[in-house]
Write a protein that binds this DNA or RNA. Structure first.
Lengths: 124, 124
DNA sequence: CACACCTTTTACAAAACTTTTACAACTCCA
DNA sequence: TGGAGTTGTAAAAGTTTTGTAAAAGGTGTG
């Protein structure tokens, strides 16, 4: 059973390892408190609001930075990097790069056993 | 009864094994998520928009690559190959080669029984 | 104003993706 | 059945996008 929630009304996101308060500037990774800067917070918030969905670079740059399209900058990448670091050791797991498009926040998922394969149904 | 749909308005194609979102960059083969690159996505989208119909090489090269006629290239073939791989194990089934013309996407069809009894589902 | 901290830019490295190349395998029809 | 034409494929080369360290630029506060 998945217990992740990301309601804007609740102003909170929570899963097995990450707790994030949309109203506050701090988060928790397991038991460790993580202080986010403003941009980091906005960036993560936007990704979390769309958890599970890809958010294009353009949208991130527009919403968090107010940049219009066609701006070439590495700012977003640098922030993603710092965010991932602060989410250690789950940074790479949570924030996924979608090449050529943008980024996606993925809810934490319990690692899979090799023995629990998905059976294929065949009509005989 | 066939349940495949490919409406551009719905922006989604879905049949028994493949789920494809025209707006997104990812698809699903059974329960496995498949990340498509831009070209792969465009190519599959074009084939899906014409599901059941042959799409000539020339059209594919023109629409996806902007190539004008008479260009000799193996690019299309290479992309088809990679697409088929990502659609494993249905790649060959879905994307059919029409020799001398082009390619055709075929909706998934339930294997036919010769006997008329209700099939039994077996997990293998 | 000086310091600390945050943000952006720069310059390059690394990774991912696309196209080409070279040749093998296949198809169709004379 | 054999050869011209077409498609399949692996690997190399080329291009684009993303990652990263470090420096430069801002901002707020004592």
């Amino acid at each position: 059973m998945l217990q992740a929630t990301a309601s804007i009304l609740e102003r909170k996101y929570k899963d097995q390892h990450l707790e994030f308060d949309f109203a506050s500037t701090s988060a928790f990774i397991d038991l460790r408190e993580v202080i986010l800067t403003r941009k980091e917070h906005e960036l993560l918030a936007l990704l979390l609001e769309n958890a599970g969905d890809i958010v294009p670079r353009e949208i991130l740059l527009e919403r968090v930075w107010g940049y219009s399209r066609d701006i070439r900058t590495r700012t977003l990448d640098v922030h993603v990097r710092r965010l991932r670091k602060k989410l250690f050791p789950y940074g790479e797991t949570y924030i996924e790069t979608i090449f050529g498009i943008g980024y996606r926040f993925q809810r934490y998922r319990e690692p899979r056993n090799f023995s629990s394969f998905v059976p294929e149904l065949i009509a005989v």
